[in-house]
């Protein structure tokens, strides 16, 4: 991952966060080590055990009021200890008046001190979204991501197996392409993987025998989508008469992307086999399962019930001597 500095945050988001730099310009070079945010109230009272100093420090009205009530020497002592830690950055919210001692010591320790006009909770929630995005684990997958009926299907399989052709067929049927060949994936929430195309590639696609085509140009804006949650991995492989394919669908198989388990299906392909319709079925079955209905399981239960009924009636006839 790229190193994220305070300067980068300031440059990219000073307007959104309504930030102004009060002191410690040298501190802009400091790195943000994590996406977490701390309210240092307890530390400012002098309790520095377990002080989360590697987090972005946000000072609100409570802290400022407390600092203003402190006698001058206690204030300098407390701020001295606070700023002796390697803090990434300090932000005072609500456009509050910043005590002169605070500005002075930030300058002295070369720690970036900002003021924002946003309220504490608003600033924290906006900053958290931004930082979570920056620190989210990311990787790239070789495959094609298509939104089929609102379900994100990630096609994988060896080169030339027909991932792009399959996506093209789906687009033609009204589904939406997200990324072809290279899919950037990010873990946006503990169990959510989001996929998108690289900015450079956009919705271009290479087709064997034709070359590079532009899906958005050819099929219009409704045929593409900027990003989509990856919900099912569809592995395409050449039909192998020796291999055993899932016949029942009772056991769910998973693949792991960035530590998140994603349902996976393996589809054998052979010339002339229509993967498009199969893809739509995969998407619809996934929706059914998400809504709590598993067709394979229901069918299996029905069969088991019938077998039990037959066994019972056989046993009854066996013992019936009337």
């Amino acid at each position: 991952m790229d190193v994220i500095t305070v300067e980068m945050l300031y440059r990219e988001r000073r307007e959104q966060f309504e930030l102004s730099l009060l002191a410690g310009r040298e501190g802009l070079k400091r790195k943000l080590a994590n996406s977490e945010i701390a309210r240092p109230g307890l530390a400012l009272t002098g309790f520095f055990k377990r002080f989360a100093h590697s987090r972005t420090q946000v000072i609100g009205q409570t802290e400022i009021t407390y600092l203003q009530d402190l006698p001058a020497d206690a204030l300098r002592d407390r701020l001295g200890r606070f700023f002796s830690f390697d803090l990434p950055m300090v932000v005072v919210t609500k456009g509050l008046n910043v005590p002169a001692d605070l500005t002075a010591i930030a300058e002295e320790t070369q720690t970036a001190l900002f003021s924002t006009r946003l309220s504490t909770s608003e600033f924290i929630s906006q900053l958290a979204v931004y930082l979570d995005g920056l620190f989210a684990p990311t990787t790239t997958k070789h495959g094609t991501l298509v939104d089929v009926f609102g379900v994100g299907l990630l096609y994988t399989g060896s080169s030339g197996i027909g991932k792009s052709e399959c996506a093209l067929d789906l687009v033609e049927r009204g589904h939406r392409l997200v990324a072809d060949d290279i899919v950037h994936v990010t873990r946006k929430a503990p169990k959510v993987i989001i996929g998108l195309a690289s900015e450079m590639q956009g919705f271009h696609m290479e087709l064997r025998g034709i070359g590079i085509i532009d899906i958005e140009r050819l099929f219009g804006i409704q045929s593409v989508r900027l990003q989509k949650r990856v919900e099912v991995e569809v592995r395409l492989e050449l039909w192998d008469s020796k291999a055993e394919y899932d016949r029942l669908g009772l056991e769910s198989k998973y693949t792991t992307i960035l530590g998140v388990e994603i349902p996976a299906v393996t589809i054998p392909v052979s010339p002339g086999k229509n993967i498009t319709v199969i893809s739509e079925v995969i998407a619809m079955t996934h929706m059914l399962k998400t809504y709590g209905e598993n067709p394979a399981e229901l069918f299996s239960q029905r069969l088991a019930e019938e077998l039990r009924r037959r066994k019972m009636s056989d046993m009854y006839l066996e013992r019936d001597f009337e």
Binding site: R247, L248, L250, F299, S300, L307, R308, R310, K311
Partner: peptide
Amino acid sequence: LGIHARPSA
């Protein structure tokens, strides 16, 4: 249980 889903497979 008879020939239910798994034995069938």
